[in-house]
Nucleic acid binder design. Structure first.
Lengths: 228, 228
DNA sequence: TATACCATAGTGGTATACCAATAAATCCAC
DNA sequence: GTGGATTTATTGGTATACCACTATGGTATA
Protein backbone atom coordinates (compact mmCIF):
# COMPACT_ATOMS: atom_id res chain seq x y z
CA UNK A 1 0.00 0.00 0.00
CA UNK A 2 1.53 3.28 -1.00
CA UNK A 3 -1.03 5.34 0.88
CA UNK A 4 0.34 5.36 4.37
CA UNK A 5 -0.07 8.95 5.44
CA UNK A 6 -0.70 9.21 9.13
CA UNK A 7 -3.28 11.94 8.55
CA UNK A 8 -5.68 9.62 6.72
CA UNK A 9 -7.92 7.29 8.63
CA UNK A 10 -8.47 3.69 7.65
CA UNK A 11 -11.55 4.44 5.55
CA UNK A 12 -9.74 7.08 3.52
CA UNK A 13 -6.72 4.85 2.99
CA UNK A 14 -8.73 1.85 1.86
CA UNK A 15 -10.82 4.08 -0.41
CA UNK A 16 -7.72 5.58 -1.99
CA UNK A 17 -6.25 2.14 -2.59
CA UNK A 18 -9.47 0.99 -4.25
CA UNK A 19 -9.68 4.03 -6.52
CA UNK A 20 -6.01 3.74 -7.49
CA UNK A 21 -6.59 0.06 -8.34
CA UNK A 22 -4.02 -1.14 -5.82
CA UNK A 23 -6.84 -3.15 -4.39
CA UNK A 24 -7.99 -4.90 -7.55
CA UNK A 25 -11.63 -5.17 -8.64
CA UNK A 26 -12.98 -8.57 -7.65
CA UNK A 27 -10.28 -9.05 -5.02
CA UNK A 28 -11.41 -10.58 -1.76
CA UNK A 29 -10.92 -8.48 1.38
CA UNK A 30 -11.41 -9.50 4.98
CA UNK A 31 -11.94 -7.37 8.05
CA UNK A 32 -8.96 -8.95 9.76
CA UNK A 33 -6.89 -8.42 6.64
CA UNK A 34 -7.54 -4.68 6.67
CA UNK A 35 -6.90 -4.72 10.39
CA UNK A 36 -3.38 -6.03 9.94
CA UNK A 37 -2.55 -4.19 6.71
CA UNK A 38 -3.58 -0.77 7.96
CA UNK A 39 -2.73 -1.19 11.60
CA UNK A 40 -6.12 -0.58 13.13
CA UNK A 41 -8.67 -2.83 14.77
CA UNK A 42 -11.70 -4.51 13.28
CA UNK A 43 -14.11 -1.85 14.47
CA UNK A 44 -12.89 0.91 12.12
CA UNK A 45 -12.27 -1.74 9.45
CA UNK A 46 -15.91 -2.80 9.61
CA UNK A 47 -17.06 0.82 9.61
CA UNK A 48 -14.94 1.52 6.53
CA UNK A 49 -16.31 -1.50 4.66
CA UNK A 50 -19.90 -0.58 5.47
CA UNK A 51 -19.33 2.96 4.25
CA UNK A 52 -17.53 1.79 1.12
CA UNK A 53 -20.40 -0.58 0.46
CA UNK A 54 -22.85 2.36 0.28
CA UNK A 55 -20.46 4.02 -2.18
CA UNK A 56 -20.46 0.89 -4.33
CA UNK A 57 -16.70 0.41 -3.98
CA UNK A 58 -16.95 -2.86 -2.06
CA UNK A 59 -19.77 -5.36 -1.95
CA UNK A 60 -20.81 -8.47 -0.11
CA UNK A 61 -19.75 -11.82 -1.52
CA UNK A 62 -21.64 -14.39 0.47
CA UNK A 63 -20.71 -13.56 4.05
CA UNK A 64 -17.50 -11.89 2.96
CA UNK A 65 -16.38 -8.79 1.11
CA UNK A 66 -14.88 -8.15 -2.32
CA UNK A 67 -13.67 -5.03 -4.08
CA UNK A 68 -16.52 -4.23 -6.48
CA UNK A 69 -15.79 -5.55 -9.98
CA UNK A 70 -16.03 -3.06 -12.82
CA UNK A 71 -19.45 -3.79 -14.26
CA UNK A 72 -20.17 -2.66 -17.79
CA UNK A 73 -23.93 -2.71 -17.36
CA UNK A 74 -23.50 -0.53 -14.28
CA UNK A 75 -21.42 1.93 -16.26
CA UNK A 76 -24.16 2.24 -18.85
CA UNK A 77 -26.77 2.73 -16.13
CA UNK A 78 -24.63 5.40 -14.51
CA UNK A 79 -24.50 7.30 -17.77
CA UNK A 80 -28.30 7.32 -17.87
CA UNK A 81 -28.44 8.54 -14.29
CA UNK A 82 -25.88 11.24 -14.99
CA UNK A 83 -27.74 12.47 -18.04
CA UNK A 84 -30.89 12.82 -15.94
CA UNK A 85 -29.40 14.55 -12.91
CA UNK A 86 -26.75 16.65 -14.62
CA UNK A 87 -29.16 18.10 -17.15
CA UNK A 88 -31.67 18.79 -14.37
CA UNK A 89 -28.93 20.51 -12.38
CA UNK A 90 -28.05 22.65 -15.39
CA UNK A 91 -31.65 23.78 -15.87
CA UNK A 92 -31.86 24.77 -12.20
CA UNK A 93 -28.47 26.47 -12.35
CA UNK A 94 -29.52 28.64 -15.25
CA UNK A 95 -32.31 30.05 -13.13
CA UNK A 96 -30.34 30.28 -9.92
CA UNK A 97 -26.59 30.55 -10.32
CA UNK A 98 -25.09 34.02 -10.08
CA UNK A 99 -22.90 35.38 -12.86
CA UNK A 100 -20.10 35.46 -10.31
CA UNK A 101 -20.43 31.74 -9.53
CA UNK A 102 -20.41 30.85 -13.21
CA UNK A 103 -17.44 33.13 -13.81
CA UNK A 104 -15.63 31.53 -10.89
CA UNK A 105 -16.15 28.05 -12.31
CA UNK A 106 -15.05 29.24 -15.75
CA UNK A 107 -11.79 30.50 -14.31
CA UNK A 108 -11.29 27.21 -12.50
CA UNK A 109 -11.83 25.33 -15.74
CA UNK A 110 -9.49 27.57 -17.71
CA UNK A 111 -6.79 27.20 -15.08
CA UNK A 112 -6.91 23.47 -15.80
CA UNK A 113 -6.72 23.84 -19.57
CA UNK A 114 -3.19 22.64 -20.25
CA UNK A 115 -4.08 19.43 -18.47
CA UNK A 116 -1.79 17.16 -20.35
CA UNK A 117 -0.96 15.33 -17.20
CA UNK A 118 -3.11 12.23 -17.16
CA UNK A 119 -3.73 11.90 -13.43
CA UNK A 120 -4.47 15.60 -13.09
CA UNK A 121 -6.85 15.40 -16.01
CA UNK A 122 -8.81 12.56 -14.42
CA UNK A 123 -9.24 14.59 -11.25
CA UNK A 124 -10.14 17.81 -13.04
CA UNK A 125 -12.60 16.05 -15.34
CA UNK A 126 -14.45 14.41 -12.49
CA UNK A 127 -14.45 17.52 -10.36
CA UNK A 128 -15.86 19.66 -13.16
CA UNK A 129 -19.12 17.75 -13.34
CA UNK A 130 -19.56 17.94 -9.56
CA UNK A 131 -18.74 21.63 -9.50
CA UNK A 132 -21.11 22.28 -12.39
CA UNK A 133 -23.85 20.53 -10.44
CA UNK A 134 -23.02 22.68 -7.41
CA UNK A 135 -24.38 25.68 -9.30
CA UNK A 136 -27.85 24.16 -8.94
CA UNK A 137 -27.77 24.51 -5.17
CA UNK A 138 -29.61 21.18 -4.86
CA UNK A 139 -27.69 18.95 -2.51
CA UNK A 140 -29.35 15.75 -3.71
CA UNK A 141 -28.51 16.40 -7.35
CA UNK A 142 -24.97 17.29 -6.32
CA UNK A 143 -24.67 14.14 -4.23
CA UNK A 144 -26.03 12.00 -7.05
CA UNK A 145 -23.41 13.37 -9.44
CA UNK A 146 -20.64 12.98 -6.89
CA UNK A 147 -21.70 9.41 -6.21
CA UNK A 148 -21.80 8.54 -9.90
CA UNK A 149 -18.36 10.04 -10.48
CA UNK A 150 -16.97 8.02 -7.56
CA UNK A 151 -18.30 4.80 -9.05
CA UNK A 152 -16.79 5.73 -12.42
CA UNK A 153 -13.47 6.93 -11.06
CA UNK A 154 -11.65 3.64 -11.55
CA UNK A 155 -12.43 3.66 -15.26
CA UNK A 156 -12.40 7.38 -15.92
CA UNK A 157 -8.69 7.43 -16.73
CA UNK A 158 -9.53 5.33 -19.78
CA UNK A 159 -11.49 8.25 -21.18
CA UNK A 160 -8.44 10.46 -21.23
CA UNK A 161 -5.81 8.13 -22.59
CA UNK A 162 -4.67 10.51 -25.29
CA UNK A 163 -3.95 14.25 -25.28
CA UNK A 164 -6.55 14.56 -28.04
CA UNK A 165 -9.22 12.96 -25.85
CA UNK A 166 -8.29 15.23 -22.97
CA UNK A 167 -8.50 18.29 -25.18
CA UNK A 168 -11.85 17.16 -26.59
CA UNK A 169 -13.29 16.65 -23.10
CA UNK A 170 -12.02 20.04 -21.98
CA UNK A 171 -13.55 21.73 -25.02
CA UNK A 172 -16.91 20.10 -24.36
CA UNK A 173 -16.82 21.17 -20.73
CA UNK A 174 -16.06 24.70 -21.81
CA UNK A 175 -18.90 24.77 -24.34
CA UNK A 176 -21.40 23.52 -21.78
CA UNK A 177 -20.33 26.16 -19.31
CA UNK A 178 -20.48 28.85 -22.00
CA UNK A 179 -24.12 27.95 -22.72
CA UNK A 180 -24.86 28.12 -18.98
CA UNK A 181 -23.23 31.54 -18.90
CA UNK A 182 -25.48 32.64 -21.77
CA UNK A 183 -28.45 31.18 -19.86
CA UNK A 184 -29.30 28.94 -22.81
CA UNK A 185 -30.82 25.96 -21.04
CA UNK A 186 -31.67 23.88 -24.09
CA UNK A 187 -28.23 24.23 -25.65
CA UNK A 188 -26.43 23.58 -22.38
CA UNK A 189 -28.44 20.46 -21.52
CA UNK A 190 -28.14 19.11 -25.06
CA UNK A 191 -24.38 19.58 -25.06
CA UNK A 192 -24.12 17.99 -21.63
CA UNK A 193 -26.23 14.99 -22.61
CA UNK A 194 -24.17 14.47 -25.77
CA UNK A 195 -20.95 14.83 -23.81
CA UNK A 196 -22.02 12.19 -21.29
CA UNK A 197 -23.30 9.81 -23.95
CA UNK A 198 -20.27 10.20 -26.18
CA UNK A 199 -17.77 9.77 -23.38
CA UNK A 200 -19.68 6.77 -22.12
CA UNK A 201 -19.84 5.08 -25.51
CA UNK A 202 -16.11 5.43 -26.06
CA UNK A 203 -15.49 4.05 -22.57
CA UNK A 204 -17.79 1.06 -23.07
CA UNK A 205 -16.26 0.27 -26.46
CA UNK A 206 -12.80 0.30 -24.95
CA UNK A 207 -13.79 -1.88 -22.01
CA UNK A 208 -15.48 -4.42 -24.25
CA UNK A 209 -12.46 -4.58 -26.55
CA UNK A 210 -10.10 -5.01 -23.62
CA UNK A 211 -12.28 -7.37 -21.68
CA UNK A 212 -10.95 -10.59 -23.12
CA UNK A 213 -7.51 -9.70 -21.85
CA UNK A 214 -8.77 -10.12 -18.32
CA UNK A 215 -11.13 -12.96 -19.05
CA UNK A 216 -10.36 -16.11 -17.13
CA UNK A 217 -7.40 -14.83 -15.19
CA UNK A 218 -9.11 -15.73 -11.93
CA UNK A 219 -10.24 -12.23 -11.06
CA UNK A 220 -13.57 -10.86 -12.25
CA UNK A 221 -12.27 -7.43 -13.07
CA UNK A 222 -14.76 -6.54 -15.74
CA UNK A 223 -18.26 -7.97 -15.56
CA UNK A 224 -21.53 -8.14 -17.44
CA UNK A 225 -20.83 -7.35 -21.03
CA UNK A 226 -24.43 -8.08 -21.95
CA UNK A 227 -25.75 -6.75 -25.22
CA UNK A 228 -23.35 -3.94 -25.99
CA UNK B 1 -41.52 1.08 21.12
CA UNK B 2 -44.32 -0.83 19.53
CA UNK B 3 -42.08 -2.55 17.03
CA UNK B 4 -40.77 -5.47 19.02
CA UNK B 5 -41.00 -8.36 16.59
CA UNK B 6 -38.27 -10.86 17.16
CA UNK B 7 -37.83 -11.30 13.41
CA UNK B 8 -36.60 -7.74 12.87
CA UNK B 9 -33.03 -6.80 13.63
CA UNK B 10 -32.07 -3.65 15.46
CA UNK B 11 -31.60 -1.61 12.29
CA UNK B 12 -35.05 -2.50 10.99
CA UNK B 13 -36.68 -1.76 14.33
CA UNK B 14 -35.02 1.63 14.75
CA UNK B 15 -35.84 2.49 11.15
CA UNK B 16 -39.49 1.56 11.62
CA UNK B 17 -39.69 3.66 14.78
CA UNK B 18 -38.20 6.64 12.97
CA UNK B 19 -40.58 6.36 10.02
CA UNK B 20 -43.59 5.94 12.30
CA UNK B 21 -42.50 9.06 14.19
CA UNK B 22 -42.19 7.21 17.48
CA UNK B 23 -38.65 8.46 17.49
CA UNK B 24 -39.33 12.15 16.97
CA UNK B 25 -37.48 14.31 14.45
CA UNK B 26 -34.78 16.24 16.25
CA UNK B 27 -34.72 13.81 19.15
CA UNK B 28 -31.32 12.92 20.48
CA UNK B 29 -30.32 9.26 20.36
CA UNK B 30 -27.28 7.57 21.86
CA UNK B 31 -25.67 4.30 20.99
CA UNK B 32 -26.05 3.08 24.56
CA UNK B 33 -29.66 4.21 24.57
CA UNK B 34 -30.48 2.03 21.56
CA UNK B 35 -28.48 -0.74 23.17
CA UNK B 36 -30.71 -0.81 26.24
CA UNK B 37 -34.00 -0.02 24.47
CA UNK B 38 -33.66 -2.70 21.83
CA UNK B 39 -31.74 -5.25 23.82
CA UNK B 40 -28.64 -5.52 21.67
CA UNK B 41 -25.09 -4.35 22.07
CA UNK B 42 -23.42 -1.20 20.82
CA UNK B 43 -21.91 -2.91 17.77
CA UNK B 44 -25.21 -3.42 15.90
CA UNK B 45 -26.46 -0.11 17.32
CA UNK B 46 -23.52 1.71 15.74
CA UNK B 47 -23.98 -0.19 12.49
CA UNK B 48 -27.66 0.75 12.40
CA UNK B 49 -26.91 4.43 13.03
CA UNK B 50 -24.27 4.51 10.31
CA UNK B 51 -26.65 2.92 7.85
CA UNK B 52 -29.52 5.19 8.84
CA UNK B 53 -27.18 8.14 8.41
CA UNK B 54 -26.66 7.24 4.75
CA UNK B 55 -30.44 7.07 4.37
CA UNK B 56 -30.78 10.54 5.87
CA UNK B 57 -32.92 9.30 8.76
CA UNK B 58 -30.39 10.13 11.47
CA UNK B 59 -27.54 12.62 11.39
CA UNK B 60 -24.59 13.67 13.48
CA UNK B 61 -25.06 16.42 16.04
CA UNK B 62 -21.60 17.33 17.18
CA UNK B 63 -20.17 14.04 18.40
CA UNK B 64 -23.66 12.61 18.97
CA UNK B 65 -26.67 11.53 16.95
CA UNK B 66 -30.14 12.97 16.38
CA UNK B 67 -33.16 11.78 14.46
CA UNK B 68 -33.06 13.91 11.31
CA UNK B 69 -35.40 16.90 11.60
CA UNK B 70 -37.92 17.37 8.83
CA UNK B 71 -36.30 20.00 6.66
CA UNK B 72 -38.51 21.97 4.31
CA UNK B 73 -35.66 23.00 2.03
CA UNK B 74 -34.71 19.33 1.75
CA UNK B 75 -38.25 18.43 0.78
CA UNK B 76 -38.18 20.96 -2.03
CA UNK B 77 -34.81 19.68 -3.20
CA UNK B 78 -36.11 16.13 -3.16
CA UNK B 79 -38.99 17.12 -5.42
CA UNK B 80 -36.48 18.50 -7.91
CA UNK B 81 -34.47 15.28 -7.75
CA UNK B 82 -37.59 13.18 -8.17
CA UNK B 83 -38.72 15.14 -11.19
CA UNK B 84 -35.35 14.55 -12.82
CA UNK B 85 -34.98 10.84 -12.09
CA UNK B 86 -38.62 9.78 -12.37
CA UNK B 87 -39.13 11.44 -15.74
CA UNK B 88 -35.87 9.95 -16.96
CA UNK B 89 -37.00 6.53 -15.75
CA UNK B 90 -40.29 6.95 -17.60
CA UNK B 91 -38.55 7.80 -20.87
CA UNK B 92 -36.38 4.72 -20.55
CA UNK B 93 -39.35 2.57 -19.58
CA UNK B 94 -41.27 3.56 -22.68
CA UNK B 95 -38.47 2.18 -24.80
CA UNK B 96 -37.81 -0.88 -22.68
CA UNK B 97 -40.69 -2.07 -20.54
CA UNK B 98 -42.74 -4.93 -21.92
CA UNK B 99 -46.48 -4.64 -22.29
CA UNK B 100 -46.76 -7.41 -19.73
CA UNK B 101 -44.75 -5.49 -17.13
CA UNK B 102 -46.86 -2.39 -17.65
CA UNK B 103 -50.04 -4.44 -17.48
CA UNK B 104 -48.83 -6.06 -14.29
CA UNK B 105 -48.21 -2.70 -12.66
CA UNK B 106 -51.58 -1.45 -13.83
CA UNK B 107 -53.29 -4.37 -12.15
CA UNK B 108 -51.34 -3.71 -8.99
CA UNK B 109 -52.43 -0.08 -9.03
CA UNK B 110 -56.04 -0.95 -9.67
CA UNK B 111 -56.06 -3.47 -6.85
CA UNK B 112 -55.16 -0.56 -4.55
CA UNK B 113 -57.85 1.73 -5.88
CA UNK B 114 -60.29 1.74 -2.96
CA UNK B 115 -57.40 2.87 -0.81
CA UNK B 116 -59.42 4.83 1.70
CA UNK B 117 -57.30 3.53 4.51
CA UNK B 118 -54.75 6.21 5.26
CA UNK B 119 -51.81 4.06 6.24
CA UNK B 120 -52.35 1.73 3.30
CA UNK B 121 -52.55 4.71 0.99
CA UNK B 122 -49.22 6.06 2.19
CA UNK B 123 -47.57 2.75 1.49
CA UNK B 124 -49.23 2.27 -1.89
CA UNK B 125 -48.45 5.83 -2.97
CA UNK B 126 -44.80 5.50 -2.13
CA UNK B 127 -44.48 2.07 -3.64
CA UNK B 128 -46.07 3.12 -6.91
CA UNK B 129 -43.33 5.57 -7.76
CA UNK B 130 -40.65 3.00 -7.00
CA UNK B 131 -42.42 0.33 -9.01
CA UNK B 132 -42.92 2.72 -11.90
CA UNK B 133 -39.20 3.44 -11.84
CA UNK B 134 -38.52 -0.31 -11.86
CA UNK B 135 -39.86 -0.43 -15.42
CA UNK B 136 -36.76 1.48 -16.50
CA UNK B 137 -34.50 -1.38 -15.50
CA UNK B 138 -31.89 1.13 -14.31
CA UNK B 139 -30.88 0.27 -10.77
CA UNK B 140 -29.45 3.69 -10.03
CA UNK B 141 -32.60 5.52 -11.08
CA UNK B 142 -34.65 3.03 -9.04
CA UNK B 143 -32.40 3.47 -6.03
CA UNK B 144 -32.57 7.26 -6.32
CA UNK B 145 -36.39 7.13 -6.31
CA UNK B 146 -36.46 4.69 -3.42
CA UNK B 147 -34.07 6.84 -1.45
CA UNK B 148 -36.11 9.97 -2.05
CA UNK B 149 -39.34 8.23 -1.03
CA UNK B 150 -37.67 7.04 2.18
CA UNK B 151 -36.64 10.56 3.07
CA UNK B 152 -40.16 11.78 2.37
CA UNK B 153 -41.95 8.93 4.12
CA UNK B 154 -42.37 10.73 7.43
CA UNK B 155 -44.27 13.55 5.75
CA UNK B 156 -45.99 11.64 2.99
CA UNK B 157 -49.04 10.88 5.10
CA UNK B 158 -49.74 14.61 5.08
CA UNK B 159 -50.32 14.41 1.33
CA UNK B 160 -53.16 11.96 1.77
CA UNK B 161 -55.04 13.47 4.69
CA UNK B 162 -58.41 13.47 2.94
CA UNK B 163 -60.17 10.84 0.82
CA UNK B 164 -60.30 13.45 -1.95
CA UNK B 165 -56.53 13.86 -1.89
CA UNK B 166 -56.07 10.10 -1.98
CA UNK B 167 -58.41 9.78 -4.93
CA UNK B 168 -56.65 12.62 -6.74
CA UNK B 169 -53.25 11.02 -6.24
CA UNK B 170 -54.54 7.66 -7.43
CA UNK B 171 -56.07 9.21 -10.55
CA UNK B 172 -52.81 10.97 -11.38
CA UNK B 173 -50.88 7.74 -10.95
CA UNK B 174 -53.31 5.97 -13.24
CA UNK B 175 -53.05 8.67 -15.92
CA UNK B 176 -49.25 8.54 -15.88
CA UNK B 177 -49.29 4.79 -16.25
CA UNK B 178 -51.84 5.01 -19.05
CA UNK B 179 -49.55 7.32 -21.01
CA UNK B 180 -46.68 4.89 -20.44
CA UNK B 181 -48.88 2.10 -21.73
CA UNK B 182 -49.61 4.17 -24.85
CA UNK B 183 -45.85 4.79 -25.17
CA UNK B 184 -46.43 8.53 -25.09
CA UNK B 185 -43.23 9.73 -23.46
CA UNK B 186 -43.92 13.45 -23.52
CA UNK B 187 -47.39 13.12 -22.01
CA UNK B 188 -46.25 10.65 -19.36
CA UNK B 189 -43.27 12.72 -18.25
CA UNK B 190 -45.31 15.93 -18.22
CA UNK B 191 -48.02 14.34 -16.10
CA UNK B 192 -45.42 12.87 -13.77
CA UNK B 193 -43.61 16.18 -13.37
CA UNK B 194 -46.87 17.99 -12.66
CA UNK B 195 -47.90 15.30 -10.19
CA UNK B 196 -44.63 15.60 -8.28
CA UNK B 197 -44.68 19.38 -8.28
CA UNK B 198 -48.33 19.64 -7.27
CA UNK B 199 -48.02 17.12 -4.47
CA UNK B 200 -44.88 18.81 -3.26
CA UNK B 201 -46.41 22.28 -3.26
CA UNK B 202 -49.40 21.17 -1.22
CA UNK B 203 -47.08 19.42 1.21
CA UNK B 204 -44.82 22.43 1.63
CA UNK B 205 -47.79 24.75 2.11
CA UNK B 206 -49.17 22.52 4.82
CA UNK B 207 -45.82 22.19 6.60
CA UNK B 208 -45.28 25.94 6.58
CA UNK B 209 -48.75 26.59 7.94
CA UNK B 210 -48.29 24.02 10.67
CA UNK B 211 -44.73 24.91 11.50
CA UNK B 212 -45.48 27.46 14.17
CA UNK B 213 -47.26 24.82 16.21
CA UNK B 214 -43.95 23.11 16.74
CA UNK B 215 -41.84 26.24 16.97
CA UNK B 216 -40.07 26.65 20.23
CA UNK B 217 -41.23 23.47 21.89
CA UNK B 218 -37.66 22.40 22.40
CA UNK B 219 -37.53 19.97 19.49
CA UNK B 220 -36.55 21.10 16.02
CA UNK B 221 -39.13 19.01 14.22
CA UNK B 222 -39.46 21.15 11.13
CA UNK B 223 -36.49 23.15 9.93
CA UNK B 224 -35.44 25.67 7.33
CA UNK B 225 -38.55 27.44 6.13
CA UNK B 226 -36.41 29.77 4.02
CA UNK B 227 -38.13 31.67 1.25
CA UNK B 228 -41.23 29.63 0.69
C1' DT C 1 -24.06 37.77 43.72
C1' DA C 2 -21.32 36.57 39.92
C1' DT C 3 -17.65 34.14 37.93
C1' DA C 4 -14.10 30.95 37.36
C1' DC C 5 -12.63 26.49 38.22
C1' DC C 6 -12.98 21.65 38.89
C1' DA C 7 -15.11 17.13 39.53
C1' DT C 8 -18.11 13.99 37.41
C1' DA C 9 -21.00 11.61 34.42
C1' DG C 10 -21.90 10.37 29.90
C1' DT C 11 -20.53 10.42 25.02
C1' DG C 12 -18.58 8.25 20.78
C1' DG C 13 -14.08 5.78 19.27
C1' DT C 14 -11.40 1.75 19.63
C1' DA C 15 -9.53 -2.80 20.71
C1' DT C 16 -10.47 -7.36 21.60
C1' DA C 17 -12.45 -11.72 23.20
C1' DC C 18 -15.95 -14.92 22.14
C1' DC C 19 -19.49 -17.15 19.14
C1' DA C 20 -21.78 -19.52 15.27
C1' DA C 21 -21.45 -20.60 10.60
C1' DT C 22 -18.93 -22.08 6.71
C1' DA C 23 -15.65 -23.69 3.71
C1' DA C 24 -11.56 -26.15 3.21
C1' DA C 25 -8.59 -29.78 4.20
C1' DT C 26 -7.57 -34.10 6.06
C1' DC C 27 -8.24 -38.66 7.31
C1' DC C 28 -10.39 -43.03 7.24
C1' DA C 29 -13.09 -46.68 5.18
C1' DC C 30 -13.87 -49.07 1.17
C1' DG D 1 -7.12 -44.48 -5.47
C1' DT D 2 -11.58 -42.49 -4.44
C1' DG D 3 -15.46 -40.82 -1.90
C1' DG D 4 -17.49 -39.44 2.12
C1' DA D 5 -17.38 -37.99 6.87
C1' DT D 6 -15.05 -35.25 10.20
C1' DT D 7 -12.03 -32.04 11.88
C1' DT D 8 -9.94 -27.52 11.59
C1' DA D 9 -9.08 -22.94 10.29
C1' DT D 10 -11.07 -18.68 9.10
C1' DT D 11 -14.85 -15.80 8.39
C1' DG D 12 -18.24 -12.12 9.83
C1' DG D 13 -21.44 -11.04 13.99
C1' DT D 14 -21.66 -9.67 18.65
C1' DA D 15 -20.69 -8.18 23.38
C1' DT D 16 -17.94 -5.57 26.21
C1' DA D 17 -14.07 -3.23 28.49
C1' DC D 18 -11.30 0.75 28.14
C1' DC D 19 -10.05 5.39 26.48
C1' DA D 20 -10.14 10.38 25.45
C1' DC D 21 -13.07 14.07 25.21
C1' DT D 22 -16.80 17.15 26.44
C1' DA D 23 -20.47 19.23 28.48
C1' DT D 24 -22.59 20.15 32.76
C1' DG D 25 -23.38 21.29 37.33
C1' DG D 26 -21.70 22.38 41.78
C1' DT D 27 -18.57 24.83 44.65
C1' DA D 28 -15.38 28.04 46.20
C1' DT D 29 -13.67 32.53 45.81
C1' DA D 30 -13.50 37.40 44.53
Amino acid sequence: MDVTSQTLNLYQRVRADILSLELMPGERVTERGLESIFGASRTPARAALMRLETEGLVQRDGRGWIISPIDISEIRALAELREAVETAAIRLSIGRASDADIESLTELLESDHPAFDEEESVRAGGDFHVELAQLSGNKFLIEAVRNAMTRLERTRWLEVRTPEAREKAWQEHWQILEMVRLRNADAATTLCAEHIKGTNERLIDFLVSQRRRFKGNGLSIINNVETI
